[in-house]
């Protein structure tokens, strides 16, 4: 069995662990931003809403290498945000944090979409009923809107996590392919493919990728079904 645990070398375990760490960090970092954007797009009425919608979705259609290059300009060693982060003790260049940042940007559109759909599916009439029962807008949000939207928010998080696991182009452009630091599963597979005789590693890592992605997609689909939404990812 190619996938028996003792066939997986310590280096490969390290790659899997790094991938999970990068994806988890990306998911956590994207959530507040993604939720705020989803809220603004679902409930906000402001000029520039369509433009904001377009910007959020840009990483979905832009060539990932372009996204990576833009990240390099903004967050690179000479970029404004890059210097600020380095000064704050959180450098991202050639670090796993940079890989998480790239994954986070690529996961954002999917997460925003799922959360936005779930917020739009919350019946505003229930919120109005809660107001008449004495709830302030903040309490309505915490006791009615959020619980009803929660399956969609979780689905968005899982989807963002899955997208992060597969992130390749923006990452390799932005923070390169450094074993132990930025070499996540897809980058490790790519690196192994460059060297003859590495078919075993490629197969194992590819199968692990398929497994992780499938689990995440099924989890997301189950959560989506639970909330009775018609927006399925499969």
């Amino acid at each position: 069995m190619a996938l028996a645990p003792d066939n997986i070398s310590p280096e490969e375990w390290g790659i899997i662990w790094l991938s999970l760490k990068v994806s988890a960090a990306a998911m956590v970092a994207t959530l507040p931003v993604g939720f705020a954007l989803a809220w603004a797009l679902a409930r906000g009425r402001f000029p520039g809403r369509v433009l904001l919608d377009g910007l959020v979705h840009l990483p979905l259609v832009l060539p990932p290498v372009v996204t990576g290059w833009l990240l390099l300009i903004v967050f690179g060693g000479t970029g404004v945000a890059g210097r600020w982060l380095a000064a704050m003790g959180m450098p991202v260049m050639f670090r796993w944090t940079g890989a998480a940042l790239a994954a986070s940007v690529m996961a954002l559109p999917l997460m925003v979409r799922a959360i936005r759909l779930s917020l739009e599916s919350v019946d505003r009439r229930l919120e109005a009923a809660a107001r008449t029962l004495g709830a302030s807008p903040m309490r309505v949000f915490v006791t009615i809107t959020l619980p009803l939207a929660l399956p969609g928010v979780l689905a968005g998080m899982v989807l963002g996590f899955a997208r992060s696991l597969g992130e390749f182009g923006a990452t390799i452009t932005f923070v390169s392919n450094i074993p132990g630091e930025t070499q996540t599963l897809p980058l490790a597979i790519y690196a192994a493919l460059q060297v003859p005789g590495q078919e075993g590693i490629v197969t194992r890592l590819a199968l692990i990728s398929v497994g992780l992605s499938l689990v995440a997609l099924v989890a997301s689909e189950v959560l989506t079904r639970r909330m009775g939404m018609r927006a399925h990812v499969l």
Binding site: A129, L133, S136
Partner: peptide, 11 residues
């Protein structure tokens, strides 16, 4: 505000 009106709304 709605929450301050003391109204019981049966929809």
């Amino acid at each position: 505000r709605p929450e301050a009106r003391g109204c019981g709304y049966v929809f």
